[in-house]
Each structure stands twice: as C-alpha cells, then as structure tokens.
Write a protein that binds this DNA or RNA. Structure first.
Length: 802
RNA sequence: GCGGAUGUGGCGGAAUGGCAGACGCAUCAGACUCAAAAUCUGACGGGGGCGACCUCGUGAGGGUUCAAGUCCCUCUAUCCGCACCA
C-alpha cells in the first residue's frame, strides 16, 4: 500500500542528502553552462513570492542544463553597498554593516527554502574588502586610461537621499530610489567616460540574444543621431555660435536661433537694453527643477538683443534664450526652422517670429502653415538648392559649409557620461588622493583595498560632502607621488560599481592577485543565461556592458559582451495588478506556503501562475491545484512501482510524446504550459493505472522530467523506482519521433468550414480514401453542389458546397 | 506625442492558419462518511431544442482565405518604456 505524500518528510530527507552529496560535480570534461541570477540587495523586508519566481525560473533552467550534462555555474551573492541598504540602516538607527549582515543572513535563509542549487563556495558580497579591492582597482585602471575624470558641473541631485545621481537614475525627473523630485546642484564630480563606448555599446547589441524590448531601450538611451555642426557668426563680433542640427537641409528656413539659458555665451550676448530680462530669465531657469522643466510644456524665452548670421545665405537671425534647449546635448544651441520643426513652430508662433517654408508640402508652398511639416521633400526658397530632394541636401549643405570652414557633419548621442560620485557613506571609497602639487593621484594598487573607515555618524550631510569628509585622520594623508601632505577623495562609488562586474568574480572569488584569473575567465565566462527583472534595462545592464568592454580592452577578459542571453521575468503583483509592497499590505510571503504545501508545490505554482515573461496576479488558492497534482503523481507512481507492468506500444508512444512536449515547451521557456503538460499526462497515466498499468521506464522518464521542477519528490520517486544515486545523474530523457507516430488520426470533417463530425482514419490514408470516408460520414449533411474539397493530411477535410 | 506589450468563460490561462476555452482555480451535483475535512465521479461561455443536435461567441469594425483568437487594414481600452535630444 502506497504511503500518502508527506512533503515535509520528503523534502527534509533530500535536503540533507544533497548537502552530503552535491549533485553538480565538475569532472573537467563537461562543457560549462553559466546561469546567472541578478543578485539581490539585502533589504530588510525579505523575499516575497515575486522574488521567488525569478529564482525558481533560473533554478529550473539550471537543473535542466545540469541534466543535459553541462558543468553548471549557478552562483549567488549580495549587492550590499548603496542607498537601499544605507537608508534602511539609518531608519533602524544601526550601522549599515550590521543591518547588511543581518539582512544577508535572513535572505540567505529564505533563498535556501527555494532549494536552488547555488554553489555557495562562489558567493560574493560587494561590501567585502576582498571584493571591493577589485571594484577600486577597476576605477584606478579607468583613471589611468583617462576614462575616469573630475568635472565640476550642475548634476542631478536628490534632496532626500542627499546625493548626486547619474542620468540613468533619474526617472521622470524623480530619484529612481526614493521618488523625490530631482534638483540640480553644482558639484565637482568623478565621471566615467561611458560615452567613449557609445558606438560599441550600440553596435554590439546585434549579437545579443536579448528581448527586443531591452535592446530597443538601450538603443534609445544611447540615442545616436546623424547631423551637422554649423557656425553662425555673431553680428558685430568675432565670435561664432556653433549649433547642432539633424536637418542642415532646412538651413534656408532658419529664422532665429535659441541657446540654452546655461550656454556659456548666454549672458555676454545680451545687449544693454536686454541685460536685465536676460539675467532674470537665466536665474529663473536655474531655479526650475527637472520635474518643472519636464511639465512646463508652454514655451518661454527671452530675446538677447543680438543677431547672428546664417552661414549659408547671410540672413540676420535674432538670438533667443529658452529652456526648451538642453545645455548638455549637442552644443547647447540650435538653429530654429519653425516651418519644419514642431517646437520651433510653437516658439515662433508664441513670439511672433517669421516662418519660412523651405520644403514643399504636397509639392507646393503652403500659405499660413498651421503646423510644422517635418517630412522630407523637395526644396523651395533655398537658392541654389531649389528643386533638390531634401535628403540629398542634408549631405550637400554641410559639405559645402565645410569647404568654407563653417561646419561639418557629425554624430551625437543622448548618452551622457556617468556621474560616479556619491556623497554617501555606504559605498566603496574612490581610491584617489588629491595633492596640491600632483593633482589627483590614484592610490597605489598594492595599497588596495582602500578600506571604508568605520564612523560614528554615517548620515548624509546634505552639503554636497560625503560623511567621510569629517574623518580628518582618514582624509589627511600623504601624496603617493611626492610624499607631501594631501587629502583623500571623500566621495564613494554608486551601488552600480560592484554590480557592474560581480558576475566575473564568482568564478574566481578567492583570488587575491587578480580580479579573475585569465585561465578561469576563459574557461567559465561569459554568462550564458541571465535572468532578472526588466527594471535594469538601461542601468545595470548598460553599465555591465561598459565595464566588460573596458576589461576586454585592458586584457582582463577575452569577450566583449557579458551576458549572451537575457530573460526578463514578469512581476508578481497583488490583487488587481498592484505591486507588492509593505505599505500596501499586499505582500505574500513564501514562508507559510512552503510550510503548508512544501517547496516543490510552491516552485511549480510559481511557474503555473502564468507565462514567465508577463506580470501575473498572485492568488494563493491556485496552489491547491499543484499540490493535488503532486499528490496524484506520487500515488500513481507508487501504485505502479511494484507491478512490473510490461511495456506496450501505446505506453512507448505516450512516453515519447511526454518527453517531446515537456522538452519543447521548456526549450521555448513556456514554463506555465510545462506544468499543465505534466498535469495532462498525469491524468492519462492515472487512467492507465486503472487498466493496464504503467511500465517502469515510463514512470522513470516522467520522474526525470519532473526533476528540475520538483526536485525533492523526483529524487524520492526515483529511489522508489529503484534508481541508483541521484535522479539528476540520469540525464535528460530523449524522444524518438518515429515512436510518437499515431497509426490512426482523428480527422475533422467540415462542411463550408463548420465542423460536422469527426472520424478516425489510418495515418497513411490516401487523399481519395480520406475524402470518400469523410463524405460518407457527412452523408446528408452535404446538401448542395460540391465546388471544392480540401484535405489536410492527418487533420481535416473541408467540403465546400454551394 | 513616439515606441512596445496586452485584451479569450466567474477567475488564472491554453491553442505550428485547421474541432476555441487544454490545464488549473472557484462553483454546483453525486459517491464515500453519523457528520465534516480529505478523496473520487460528473456538470460547468451565451441562446434554442425532449432529443441525436442547431446557433451565436476570442475588445470594436472591415478585409484576405475552403478555414482567422492567430495574417492584413482602421479603431478602442489598459499597462509599460521614452519624452522639448533639434
């Protein structure tokens, strides 16, 4: 008599077994497969069922790869520096080092509940000095190559987090972490020259097996555009203003130009009469937050009183200032062609500036344009260019100006250099010493890691200085270059610093000589499959690509892209699609579900809730269905186990179909239908148990297929069936297409596309016989003259009648 | 404004152009039970018919096709991303 399924006993037994006999063993002969999870930051809230899903998906995929015979690399670590950890510590009134350690311990316990086969020998923690030694080392290398540089400029500033932010960390004008509106602050910052890699970051997207959505987001973020820089001489001056435009073909239509209020020449262009208004405008613009600037779509501006000369036709155009022109894109100045640009049109209408059409709309000039015409077309009102296609003029105009030294073709990117300094405590100290004589000098590599000093007060100061600035005994040092007194850099690195390269370190995490040995890097890297949420599409994933390309350039690794394939799992939400959060009170903890239903059931239910790439609403009740399936499968195997049922043709067919269905669904990442597939086949096997029974090979195969999804019960049933060792050593079952073939097929018989009956015919029936059989079966249902007969072998007969 | 995704029973969802609603949840009925739970069996989109059956039905409207949830066009709703980048 079969014992009923007891998840607690089964799961405890196998956890212990796996601890004693690990199932992932590198025999050196196997090909590697690196399956990576986006490592978590150890927040105080612990994991909810949504976090579980990502880890379950990656574990299922990892175990599948393991069974296929790969040597699996499946590590886990902690992204423990940065704002979330520090803000939590401040809230709790405890040192971030303490809370971080506690949170790591708690989340590690929760992750262990998943029974994922992480190799904890590979564990990394970004706050470990042995790890951040190399985070600092990379910075020093970038400094040496001129990729890390200091610059004083107005940067994005979060008044709540009291730190500067990178462009990527500002979402709709608000702080990506806390949601506060971002302001500007003039600060001397360390910057990383990611723009130098813009073209490679763009081009290499082609070779990645990533969701198109993410590639598109990165493409847009890099924002490459082709255009020209043109020089407008300032009237009565020897100075010129360079503008950037993507439409040099419309140059004859330029009736005014606009500079960003922050433009270096903005103040000096003001005539005495306009001086007050100009300075007022510049001041007002400087007070606007990013949110205001985004929301105030109504154009504002001020005339400087000064004119510039159109380099092509010598026309005099007024120079205006307006905050719709961005200071840090292009040259911070534009030529305005109101007839062919929506924004310029709006500005011209508001301030009564002339509008000259230079590209024909519908082949002609339009009286009184009511909106800008932004399409290409035939040039008009453009002197020698009249009649030319505007796309051709796009090339010709800058070429012509280049000969006169007044312009050139150029490309521009939306991507900005990466603001890398944070005025916060909980991060890697930037390993730089400021010497009055030698300038910025990197900390010598043999003195790395530069340890983050312990402090009493780690709260952000809000002054633009890091809390480290108060520790005089740490700040005051000597110059590594000349030995004279010098001061340490007090800013820290952003959270992204560690996460930009952590995946390289896992495979050689104890190496104190190198970031990663070249031998291990060549053997185990890069990542084959990366699984995580889509929220990092332009943050972590762009930064990591940049770091990897840099490390390639300096010979640390031999590949340019870190993540070959990327999978973004959808979010698990609460009722009505509301994001799970503590404040909403809709967080579902996996802990109780594991206790009541077991790890195997929760793992399968996490996949069963819906397609893995889409968001899914969590509903606790559904887990009963998965639990019932597991119990029925358990019972079915137990009932057949001792019977020694002989193998029949039907059983062989069923087994091969099962392997085929599960494998193809798994390969296409349709994990929810893998689970429903198991249920479907189990229903069939339960039926067979009542009659012929199920043979041992089929049972064994089903158990093996189930193993990546429900590893505990699979191990137990594998043992029940007399299997030796671990089920994971059995390999992934294969199927034989020939054995799957049906002798008989169900043929749907339709009249005029409507199903009237279904008949069974031999699989190899001829078209004539099939049609004859169908017509006989349809009989009196065919009432008119037959005008067409369709036969799709093995599927359908359709009789078309008048 | 631009770009992307999604829209199928009471619910989650399934369907290489070929029987729409697999699988599961919930619900209802029955069996077992003193009873309940668990388990098992059956029903379960709408309308019609005593009935084998007929008919409508995949956000809306057109189209292609012998055949459309699926392909094409035009809308619409929801969600996400970007958003004055010249």
């Amino acid at each position: 008599m079969a014992t009923p399924y007891n998840h607690r006993a089964v799961e405890q037994k196998w956890r212990k077994m796996w601890e004693e006999h690990p199932i992932n063993v590198n025999d050196g002969k196997k090909e590697k497969y690196y399956c990576l999870d986006m490592f978590p930051y150890p927040s105080g809230n612990g994991l909810h069922v949504g976090h579980w899903r990502g880890y379950v998906i990656s574990d299922v995929w990892s175990r599948y790869k393991l069974m296929q015979g790969y040597y699996l690399i499946h590590p886990m670590g902690w992204d423990a520096f940065g704002l979330p950890a520090e803000n939590y510590a401040i809230k709790m009134g405890t040192h971030p080092a303490v809370t971080t350690a506690e949170n790591v311990a708690n989340i590690k316990r929760q992750i262990n509940e998943i029974a994922a086969i992480y190799d904890w020998d590979m564990e990394v923690n970004t706050t470990d000095p042995a790890f951040y030694k190399w985070t600092q080392w990379i910075f020093v290398q970038m400094f040496k190559k001129g990729l890390a540089y200091e610059k004083e400029m107005p940067i994005n500033w979060c008044p709540s987090c009291k730190t500067g932010l990178a462009n990527e960390e500002v979402v709709n004008g608000c702080c990506e972490r806390c949601g506060s509106p971002v302001t500007k602050k003039n600060l001397k910052q360390w910057m990383l020259r990611i723009t130098k890699y813009a073209d490679r970051l763009l081009k290499d997207l082609d070779q990645l097996d990533w969701p198109e959505k993410v590639k598109k987001m990165q493409t847009d973020w890099i924002g490459k555009s082709y255009g020209a820089e043109l020089d407008f001489q300032v009237e009565n001056s020897d100075k010129a203003i360079t503008v950037y435009t993507t439409r040099p073909d419309t140059l004859y239509g330029a009736t005014f130009m606009v500079l960003a209020p922050e433009h270096a020449m903005a103040k000096e262009l003001a005539t005495p009469e306009q001086k007050e208004a100009v300075e007022q405008y510049i001041f007002n613009a400087s007070m606007k937050s990013s949110v205001d600037r985004l929301q105030d779509k109504e154009k504002t501006g001020v005339f400087t009183g000064t004119y510039a000369i159109n380099p092509l036709n010598g026309a005099k155009v007024p120079i205006w200032l307006s905050d719709y022109v961005l200071a840090d894109y292009g040259t911070g100045a534009i030529m305005c062609v109101p007839a062919h640009d929506d924004r310029d049109f709006e500005f011209a209408k508001k301030f009564g500036l002339p509008i000259i059409q230079v590209i024909a709309k519908d082949g002609k000039e339009v009286e009184d344009l009511t909106e800008a015409y932004t399409e290409p077309g035939i040039m008009i009102n453009s002197g020698a260019f009249n009649g030319m296609d505007s796309n051709e003029a796009k090339e010709k105009v800058p070429d012509m100006l280049e000969k006169k030294g007044l312009g050139k073709k150029t490309v521009n990117y939306k991507l900005r250099d990466w603001v890398f300094s944070r005025q916060r405590y909980w991060g890697e100290p930037i390993p730089i010493v400021h010497c009055p004589d030698c300038g910025a000098v990197p900390v010598p590599e043999d003195q790395l890691p530069l340890l983050l000093p312990d402090v009493e007060s780690y709260q952000p100061t809000g002054t633009g200085e890091s809390p480290l600035a108060d520790i005089t005994e740490w700040v005051n040092t000597t110059c590594p270059c000349c030995g004279k007194p010098a001061k340490r850099e007090t800013n820290t690195m952003p959270q992204w610093a560690g996460s930009s390269w952590y995946f390289l370190r896992y495979v050689d995490n104890k190496n104190d000589k190198e970031l990663v040995s070249r031998e291990k890097a060549d053997k185990y890297l890069p990542v084959d499959m990366y699984i995580g949420g889509v929220e990092h599409a332009v943050l972590h994933l762009l930064y990591s690509r940049f770091y990897t390309k840099f490390l390639y350039d300096i010979g640390v690794v031999d590949f340019e892209e870190p993540f070959h394939k990327l999978f973004n799992q959808g979010m698990i939400t609460g009722k009505n699609g509301i994001k799970m959060s503590k404040s909403k009170g809709n967080v579902v903890s996996p802990d109780d579900l594991v206790r009541d239903y077991g790890c195997d059931s929760l793992r399968m239910y996490e996949l069963f809730v819906g397609p893995p790439e889409l968001d899914s609403e969590w509903d606790d009740r559904g887990i009963d269905g998965v639990y019932r399936f597991i119990s029925r499968f358990w019972k079915m195997v137990q009932e057949n186990a001792g019977k020694d049922v002989p193998e029949t043709k039907e059983l062989v067919k069923l087994r091969n179909k099962l392997v085929y269905d599960i494998t193809t669904r798994l390969e296409s990442f349709s994990l929810n239908t893998v689970i429903s597939g198991f249920m479907e086949y189990n229903n069939k096997l339960v039926e067979l148990t009542k009659t012929t029974g199920v043979d041992r090979t089929t049972l064994m195969t089903a158990v093996q297929l189930l193993a990546p999804f429900a590893p505990h019960i699979a191990e137990e049933l594998h043992q029940v069936l007399g299997g030796e060792g671990s089920v994971f050593a059995e390999g992934w079952p294969t199927y034989d297409e020939a054995a799957m073939k049906d002798d008989e097929k169900e043929i749907v018989c339709q009249v005029n596309g409507k199903t009237r009956t279904v008949i069974k015919l031999p699989a190899d029936v001829s078209k004539e016989d099939a049609l004859a059989a169908a017509k006989a079966a349809l009989g009196s249902k065919i009432t008119g003259t037959i005008i067409k007969e369709i036969y799709v072998p093995g599927r359908i007969v359709n009789i078309v009648q008048k």
